[in-house]
């Protein structure tokens, strides 16, 4: 496991050194807070949002889920790049175990998300977000599970797809509808029954519900255990698939 840690630290150091990293990864959520938040305030005033009329309280926890969806969803690019540059090949000739190599990439993705999530909660606080400490810690844990799920899928795809553009297309095709149907932007209850029905099959819907409950410290909310159950299962399955894929691709 020391090897996995070494790989993860190496990746993180490289990521953090990129001057655009901090800006680019938090740019999108902050823009949402800045520009979409006030719009949502209008909605809250005229129509009311579930959980009160504070738009930030409704919106900010969902941003954490959205960030996990996109940031981890595009992790595959990192791996593709490392495969193309010969970096992975170089590591494969060292005594590092294949599992450690795989877990190194998952670990760096998870640590990355933890940092970003904490930064987002702090940002949210500036926009008037109230957060419960205990609930937030659980929320970050849930975000990590979502991250493992998304990055495993993304990494697995990167092993098969050599073209970056195609990879981006595939990821977007799945991430975008999953995001909208999760009710991050607007409550799904605003939509017609058909949308509400389809959304029930979107695992991220439960994650977003849980994120709102957790930020308020409502740990006992049924959405919380449901989201954890779903994403523990999904992360185990997708991670298994990625590990197997890695074993085949880089024997």
């Amino acid at each position: 496991m020391r090897d996995a840690y070494l790989i993860a630290m190496n990746e993180l150091r490289v990521t953090i050194r990129n001057p655009f990293w901090a800006v680019s990864s938090l740019f999108q959520p902050i823009i949402y807070l800045l520009l979409f938040g006030p719009l949502l305030n209008g909605v809250a005033a005229s129509r009311g949002l579930p959980g009160g009329d504070n738009a930030v309280q409704f919106f900010a926890p969902g941003l954490l889920v959205m960030n996990a969806l996109f940031a981890a969803g595009f992790e595959g690019f990192t791996l593709r790049d490392k495969l193309d540059s010969g970096f992975i090949e170089r590591l494969r000739v060292t005594p590092i175990s294949r599992l450690a190599l795989t877990m190194g990439f998952i670990l760096q993705s998870a640590i990355n998300l933890i940092i970003q999530s904490i930064a987002l909660i702090v940002c949210g606080a500036f926009f008037g977000l109230h957060f419960d400490i205990g609930g937030s810690i659980l929320l970050v844990l849930l975000i990590v599970l979502i991250g493992i799920t998304m990055s495993s899928i993304s990494f697995r795809l990167a092993l098969i797809i050599r073209e970056g553009g195609i990879l981006a297309g595939i990821v977007n095709t799945f991430v975008l509808p999953a995001m909208i149907l999760s009710g991050i932007m607007l409550p799904i209850s605003f939509g017609p029954p058909i949308i509400q029905f389809i959304a029930k099959f979107d695992p991220f819907l439960y994650a977003v519900d849980a994120s709102r409950a957790l930020i308020n410290g409502a740990i006992g909310d049924p959405s919380v255990w449901m989201a954890f159950a779903i994403f523990i299962a999904l992360s185990v399955i997708t991670l298994g698939v990625f590990i197997r894929g890695m074993r085949e691709a880089v024997a």
Binding site: R17, F87, E89, R90, V93
Partner: peptide
Amino acid sequence: RHIGYVGQKGGMEHVA
């Protein structure tokens, strides 16, 4: 453990 390998692409981390 006993071999070293230098591939055609090298495989250096570019930003390190």
